[in-house]
Design a protein around this nucleic acid. Structure first.
Lengths: 183, 183
DNA sequence: AGCTAATCAGGCGTAACAAT
DNA sequence: ATTGTTACGCCTGATTAGCT
């Protein structure tokens, strides 16, 4: 099923596609390409679920190795009749899901809570806080970078334009909520 | 998904190596395993540096827009004779580099071993690190305040208040990845 | 609604390589 | 040997498409 991609001769593999820069041109109907339908019928995003066996097997594997490497993925895909890429997707989504479910406990005020794989909640809280702090530093640094230009280098005395909507980073997105970037 | 971009038909490209956007194939190794001996020559990674003009131009752009969107990237690639993907890479690398240079904090009070690759980052270290991060934030905020004056609405100086639902972010991820599995 | 497969853009780490 | 630059892989988080 899935197409495969890749193709380079060397062997490798995996692929991930990327499409490009073009943004979305595709909006709209799925296939509008009238003339070439021949492409691949596979391409469609047909909804489909993996069989219970496949899921079971993967789930079992997941318990031992939440982060399979390419060999392991290949092995699995091979055994289950899925493509490596699908296996990869599955694990990714699984991880996300797991994480989401783990974070229902709240920790914010650090009132004790979840235990993330064996680490004490205390340590965990510190780590979280730490991560947040770092994020914030990143955020600040980003803004600062915009004002300053690039630190050393020529003079930087002209921030003149105050309006710079794009500051980026996830921190910003997170802080500001959603906001499309324009420009 | 698939296939790519043009893959089908087009055919021909080869001239310059990668043209597409999607580029991604190749295997390579990740960390641990590498058994294939056979491919070595194929994998050549043609190395080359962009010309001073290209760099200069991009750098200039970077100052104004560290995060160019597709259009901007395309425009640049067009003007400079690079592929969009290369431009993308360049900006990515540039951002990383900048960030690195901005954060020289490191854990010095703690004794310098910020990440002990085994599993022993104690609470103490975390706490110290934490304090330093706060200090750094304060510092950055102060500088920023000078540039911005008063237009910041939300206070930046108070971390934990920022709502970020995600509990484990990069810090955790880093730890997990590095230490494979514990326990 | 709630799930699940797949996609996209971006970040991090790192391999490959050139220059010092 | 170290550092800097280009390129790439894998990952994550957010979204989208398609069921149930």
């Amino acid at each position: 099923m899935l197409p495969d991609m890749n193709s380079t001769a060397s062997g490798g593999d995996e692929s991930q596609r990327k499409r490009n820069d073009g943004i979305d041109n595709k909006s709209s109907s799925e296939n509008l390409d009238n003339n070439s339908i021949n492409n691949q019928e596979l391409k469609r995003k047909r909804y489909h679920r993996h069989t219970p066996e496949q899921i079971q097997e993967m789930e079992a594997f997941f318990k031992q190795h939440p982060h399979p490497n390419h060999n392991q993925r290949k092995e699995l895909s091979d055994k289950l009749g899925l493509e490596p890429l699908q296996v990869k997707f599955w694990f990714q989504n699984k991880r996300t899901q797991l994480k989401r479910s783990l974070s229902n406990a709240r920790c914010r005020a650090c009132g004790r809570a979840i235990v993330v794989d064996g680490k004490s909640s205390n340590e965990h809280c510190l780590r979280v806080e730490n991560a947040q702090l770092r994020e914030q530093i990143e955020y600040l640094a980003a803004i600062l970078a915009k004002f300053v230009g690039k630190s050393l280098e020529n003079d930087v005395g002209t921030p003149s334009s105050t309006a710079s909507p794009t500051i980026d980073t996830k921190a910003v997105r997170k802080l500001k909520g959603k906001q499309k970037m324009e420009e």
